[in-house]
């Protein structure tokens, strides 16, 4: 019975979301929640409250007791007033989408949102809900904003859609729930998941490096830099971490800047995804080692270079290479 009720309510909820999405379309990165797009409905506690007030009304009528009537109507008034308060807590709120950093497939992508209160009054405990998760905003004083992180586990390489966000509040008494939907037509890049360290041996090593990058330039200490995803743990400067709390990585640089070609044909015979995973691993390792490197894919070639911008270009190319047709079009 309760399973049926749950599936029924979730079906109705899905229908309502779809209807709301069609009604208001997609939203820009900065959205003003105007009154027309805020929905409001009693919570279960609200229904129980209504039942209690109704019972009190029956009791007052039965005993014909004026004090009873007064309390009943006072509580009914509190219920009615809280509709207004609940709605106003959300109306005219500004929601800004601040973007997300690319992550590797399988990691959590963190979409950052800012809620901005341009009104005169404090906004209390606004909740952001997406998928099965939620986060609650601090009380927003007038003319302030607060940044919230919405994290979603990414599935595969390519693009990750910004999740549909429900912005809701139960202020003041939890009797009512006011909410608005935020449908952003934005997507963020997901790098391919790099292959495991040891899987490289299985596919054989690059035969086309002008000199083995495995030497890794581990000879000379050249400095510390901020930790980047994919850095080998043995390069992390643990002492510096303990001292400063900052995650730093020791960088080594061999004397000569070798040029390494990362080539699609390095992983001969492997599937597309396996090749991409292997190439991604290589890009990360060679970048970490401080070499200049180029990338060759069928029909594509990136001239050797180094640095974060080049790394991003290579990883982006790998992320989008031979994605399913529909996804590539939307890219």
């Amino acid at each position: 019975m309760s399973a049926f009720a749950a599936s029924l309510s979730s079906a109705i909820g899905a229908r309502a979301r779809e209807w709301a999405r069609k009604r208001q379309g997609t939203d820009p990165a900065s959205t003003h929640l105007d009154s027309r797009r805020i929905y409001i409905f009693p919570t279960r506690a609200g229904f129980i409250f209504g039942l209690i007030v109704f019972t009190m009304l029956l009791g007052s009528m039965n005993y014909n007791n004026n004090m009873g009537f007064a309390l009943t109507f006072l509580l009914a008034g509190i219920g009615v007033i809280s509709i207004h308060h609940c709605h106003r807590n959300l109306a005219d709120l500004y929601v800004h989408y601040l973007g997300a950093q690319p992550v590797f497939a399988g990691d959590f992508m963190v979409f950052r949102f800012a809620l901005e209160n341009r009104g005169m009054g404090t906004r209390w405990q606004i909740k952001l809900k997406w998928d099965d998760q939620s986060i609650v905003c601090n009380d927003l004083l007038p003319e302030t904003r607060d940044t919230l992180k919405v994290s979603v586990r990414t599935q595969g390489r390519g693009y990750q859609d910004v999740p549909r966000i429900q912005i809701s509040t139960r202020f003041p008494l939890g009797l009512l729930n006011a909410w608005a939907w935020l449908n952003l037509d934005e997507k963020e890049l997901v790098y391919p998941c790099p292959a495991h360290r040891d899987s490289q041996n299985r596919f054989g090593n690059s035969g086309q490096t002008t000199s083995g990058y495995d030497r890794g330039g581990d000879e000379d200490f050249s400095g510390l830099r901020a930790y980047r995803l994919g850095d080998p743990p043995k390069h992390v400067a643990w002492k510096a971490l303990a001292r400063t709390g900052e995650m730093l990585v020791t960088e080594y640089r061999s004397g000569d800047q070798d040029i390494v070609w990362i080539d699609w044909t390095d992983f001969h015979g492997a599937s597309v995804e396996a090749r991409i995973a292997g190439l991604t691993r290589k890009v990360l390792e060679i970048e970490n080692a401080g070499h200049r490197y180029g990338l060759r894919l069928p029909g594509l070639e990136y001239a050797p270079a180094a640095g974060p911008a080049h790394r991003h270009e290579c990883l982006k190319t790998l992320a989008l290479f031979r994605l399913a047709d529909t996804e590539r079009q939307s890219a």
Binding site: M61, N64, N66, A70, F73, L74, A76, I78, I81, P172
Partner: peptide, 22 residues
């Protein structure tokens, strides 16, 4: 909340019909 509910209470208190007797 209670203060804002008072006008509502007063209006209902005087407009609500009373049925004599239990």
């Amino acid at each position: 909340l209670v203060a804002q509910a008072v006008p509502f209470m007063i209006i209902l208190f005087f407009l609500f019909p009373r049925i004599p007797g239990p």
